[in-house]
């Protein structure tokens, strides 16, 4: 056999167990069932163990921040990959959710666990209404305009000295205890994540994808594209505002730095690293990027350079992201085949 590599082609084949697990048959054998359940179980158990594994309060806090970014990243992935709305306004959702919860807590005296859900819904409604004028914009235009929203909000608060001005709103109640804080946020994140995974596979999820693929055909199908875009933005901003509300209570403060660019940019980087369109990938991306940026904090501004290197590395060598790569390895095997 003298076959050169040019005459070979790598072939990817679904594993037998993947094929067998696709239908209802999966329920009939432990092997197939465990094939399906293992990745989910690892994710859930892993996330629930994280706070216990952290060496101290500092790193536990870092884990909370990971989750805050993960909400944004999952929301970004949903909007960009399933609806075709590339939103660079993550920071806007954080700020709106944060200020709402701050007001509900300090002015109306609601405890954090009541203020957060209310702020989430109120914030998402407000964000959706404010974003309505942008919905007809396509692609990069939508991206640019949404990027302006948080910057505009911060300048507005500064200029008119409202909502506490540059000092922000201080003296928010923190979560009753750190463990509750951690598990509330992790629990919410897991719930949202699985809800989103389910949503994108329903007929409604299909409509979202159709809006992304081909909005003219959706219109011709007697469907109101703007309504579905607004609904998607509402779902995306629910996650962002929830994250913002939690963040405000973590820091016991809500201020204009919650409209900072980091909240818009890091989730996108995390999505690229984790694998866009997988919804879980963005969470994995956050699990890497947020602690990495903490570790690099000692390097001062050099941190940005390291950070960029990580990103460039991923884009060049693993452009489909960790999750897509992992999923492929799990579901398929490869072999060389002669052409």
């Amino acid at each position: 056999m003298n076959v050169t590599t040019e005459q070979m082609r790598r072939e990817r084949i679904d594993r037998g167990i993947k094929v067998r697990s696709d239908g209802l048959y999966a329920l009939m054998s432990w092997r197939e069932l465990s094939y399906l359940m293992t990745p989910r179980t690892i994710l859930i158990v892993g996330m629930l163990c994280l706070p216990l594994l952290m060496p101290g309060a500092y790193w536990q806090r870092v884990m909370s921040i990971v989750c805050i970014y993960a909400f944004l990243a999952v929301g970004f992935d949903f909007l960009a990959h399933y609806v075709g709305l590339v939103s660079l306004g993550g920071a806007f959702f954080i700020g709106v959710g944060g200020y709402f919860s701050a007001i509900l807590n300090t002015t109306f005296g609601l405890p954090p666990l009541v203020a957060i859900p209310m702020a989430t819904i109120a914030g998402a409604v407000l964000s959706t209404i404010l974003l309505l004028p942008c919905l007809p914009l396509r692609g990069v235009y939508f991206a640019i305009v949404t990027l302006m929203y948080p910057l505009f909000a911060a300048r507005l608060i500064e200029a008119f000295d409202m909502l506490g001005g540059t000092d922000g709103i201080m003296g928010l109640d923190s979560f009753p205890n750190p463990m509750l804080e951690q598990y509330f946020i992790i629990g919410m994140l897991l719930m949202m994540l699985f809800a989103m995974r389910r949503l994108v596979n329903t007929d409604l999820g299909l409509v979202f994808r159709a809006v992304k693929d081909n909005d003219q055909a959706v219109r011709a199908s007697a469907m109101n594209v703007t309504f579905y875009k607004a609904l998607a933005v509402f779902i995306g901003s629910l996650m962002g505002c929830l994250a913002g509300a939690c963040l405000a209570h973590i820091y016991m403060w809500s201020g204009i730095s919650q409209f900072a660019l980091d909240f818009s940019i890091l989730p996108i980087a995390a999505t690229v690293i984790g694998g866009s369109g997988t919804l879980v990938g963005p969470l994995i991306g956050c699990l890497i990027l947020v602690p990495a940026s903490e570790l690099l904090r000692d390097f001062g501004t050099l941190r940005i350079a390291f950070y960029s290197l990580i990103l460039v590395g991923f884009i060049v060598f693993r452009s489909d992201g960790i999750m897509s790569w992992g999923q492929r390895k799990y579901e398929q095997f490869e072999r060389w085949k002669k052409i």
Partner: peptide, 18 residues
């Protein structure tokens, strides 16, 4: 203007959702 990335029959799920 079909939805090229979907299976053919899924194309009709969108109008049927209206």
């Amino acid at each position: 203007r079909p939805y090229y990335s979907l299976p053919a029959y899924k194309n009709l799920v969108i109008p049927l959702f209206s």
